[in-house]
Design a protein around this nucleic acid. Structure first.
Lengths: 233, 233
DNA sequence: TATAAAAGTTAGACTAATCTAACAAATAAG
DNA sequence: CTTATTTGTTAGATTAGTCTAACTTTTATA
């Protein structure tokens, strides 16, 4: 059984490697900064995790998750994102409120709870920030977020999250009829002013690239399941 | 902000006083046994809680909750019972599985979460064990559990929980058509063999006093709201 | 390539929560 | 009412996670 703290270190390491440009390892100071602890503290914990065979590193070198460590980290991420989805969809929390509470809920120990929650939410593939939710086996859809501004004209896509949590942005999202799970058709991209013309539920709007870059989407016929728990070296 | 551990001591003290025969104080060894720690450990924590003005005691005397301490303890109990209800009603956990997980969930810190959860569950008055759930103000219905065997013939009541969690008992509960929130009419109580004749959704059955004593009920027109946060002395 | 800067490690200290063992006070029993 | 038992307290140690300050190794750069 891992402690709350150990789980956080593994999750941090996963975020710093897999999720940020697919590096395979992370430095002690880097991890310490991410977890808001001092390097000395992170160093102690890394020793402990190495002892438990959850990470690997050479003295003065960088750390990477072992297969087992990665598995544990993905479990924490799975729980975090399922809880975010629960808070957003069932308890009407807003996009920016879900993270903090999910940081606590992700450490609840009960395999049954996780699976029941997953089922209750109807096995969601993405959380309200558009991040993929690993399934029970640790597999998840696409690792890098696509945003509306990256989509081609003529394409059909589905909004799965937002990157900006400001009130001004979220109000604007509402105004153009957007929201989680809404289908978006890219009508055209104006070469002159770069505005993107979209259609949501039959309603057309033009949005700026700045706006579009904060709408996380998944394209139709894309984003196949990919195993996130790859070999550790 | 109270720690996970401090919350557990306050909750334990509440259970040992209010809930068990309405004593107003509890001894150090008694509390230690309840929390499964050694007396020396409980003693240290009691000192700390006294310092924080959450409990009161004289050296070598018994401890009781202050008004503030009682308030905090009731908040924990509220969270525990709301989570139990969530697990039972929404995630289809069985009666005997909810407690352990709720022990963890009760420590999640987020006032908004508690209130949203309460609303999501439609402000339940009882948890699956038939224990009253304090409302946002700390008030709750009746403190002592009534069971089916205590009910008078002719009365109408509602099942709110069970005391026995064995598979055999729960299967029997199902067989007679009983379950949480089911209305029960007491048709008659046989003086000869003490069997209780009941009607549930138009279906009649006779049950033993043993069975009936494990069915927690609330009578119609009874169980008014009572303030649990009474004066500390 | 020598040295300055960055990155990583070690040593020693602190806090919270726990323990054991020894001791002190209160209560119960004869 | 004296003594034995129960109950409560104190002292000192331990573990997990954190810190600061000093030190070492690696990397970058002048």
């Amino acid at each position: 059984m891992l402690s709350y703290t150990e789980e956080n270190y593994l999750k941090g390491l996963l975020q710093l490697t897999q999720e940020r440009g697919n590096k395979t390892d992370a430095g002690t100071n880097e991890l310490a900064a991410h977890l808001k602890v001092k390097p000395a503290t992170a160093n102690d914990m890394l020793k402990k995790l190495k002892e438990k065979k959850l990470i690997e590193y050479e003295k003065y070198g960088k750390s990477s998750l072992t297969k087992e460590g990665r598995k544990k980290a993905i479990e924490v991420v799975r729980k975090h994102r399922l809880w975010e989805t629960f808070l957003f969809e069932k308890l009407a929390f807003s996009w920016d409120e879900v993270h903090e509470v999910a940081e606590q809920l992700e450490h609840i120990q009960s395999p049954k709870l996780v699976d029941k929650l997953d089922e209750f939410l109807n096995f969601p593939a993405f959380d309200p920030h558009g991040d993929a939710i690993p399934n029970k086996k640790g597999e998840m859809k696409q690792l890098s977020k696509r945003t509306l501004d990256e989509e081609e004209a003529g394409q059909l896509c589905t909004m799965i999250g937002v990157k900006d949590n400001s009130a001004a942005f979220l109000k604007y999202v509402d105004q153009v009829g957007l929201g989680i799970k809404k289908k978006i058709k890219i009508i055209a991209k104006q070469p002159y002013d770069e505005l993107i013309e979209i259609e949501v539920e039959g309603r057309r709007s033009s949005v700026s690239p700045k706006f579009a870059s904060n709408i996380v989407i998944v394209s139709e016929n894309k984003g196949g399941t990919k195993n996130a728990a790859r070999k550790s070296h």
